[in-house]
């Protein structure tokens, strides 16, 4: 019974530790992200972050999170670019091997990925991705967005 009690205590402690870690550290879940000086896309960019980067949460304001990177850079990023899950870029190592659950981990590059897309395309040779690739090159910077709004004299109630 003593052994069982130790196991239960260990399991509870483990769960508590995981919960604490999740609250303060988040991962980037988009391909590329930017940290900004203030909680707005119109803020100056302070740093770039990549898929799977871990950041420490410092503050939160209306959908934006102020974070610090591993290099000590700080800035604001929208919460839709972040996940509480740990993004594992090299599945098969570390946490994955020890069996951490899917609710704690997001496995980068696993599942529906470029490999599955390649297989899907080889099975559907008539499918043409030319314009899909091309439309992904249509990119607008926040500065272009600001100019677009300014020349159109579009003014939001919040002034941005």
């Amino acid at each position: 019974m003593a052994r069982i009690r130790i196991c239960v205590v260990a399991a509870v402690l483990l769960a508590a530790t995981v919960a604490l870690a999740v609250a303060g550290v988040m991962s980037i879940q988009v391909r590329t992200g930017k940290l900004r000086t203030r909680p707005s896309f119109l803020g100056q960019v302070t740093a770039s972050v990549g898929y799977g980067d871990r950041v420490t949460v410092l503050d939160e304001k209306s959908g934006w999170i102020q974070v610090r990177t591993g290099n000590g850079q700080t800035g604001w990023i929208h919460n839709s670019a972040l996940t509480e899950k740990k993004v594992v870029l090299n599945a098969g190592q570390g946490d994955v091997a020890t069996g951490a659950s899917g609710s704690e981990l997001a496995l980068a590059g696993k599942g529906f990925n470029d490999e599955v897309e390649a297989e899907f395309r080889s099975e559907n040779p008539d499918l043409d991705y030319t314009w899909v690739d091309r439309m992904e090159t249509f990119r607008l910077t926040p500065e272009q967005a600001r100019r677009f709004l300014a020349t159109g004299k579009i003014a939001s109630p919040g002034g941005e």
Binding site: V30, R31, Y51, H78, E136, F138, L140, P142, A145, F148
Partner: peptide
């Protein structure tokens, strides 16, 4: 894209993996 991406920045989900196009 100028119009659409500007609007997307104001949504509750401005950031997706590959962005709005």
């Amino acid at each position: 894209n100028e119009l659409g991406q500007t609007l997307a920045m104001a949504s509750d989900r401005p950031e997706t993996f590959g962005g709005y196009h």
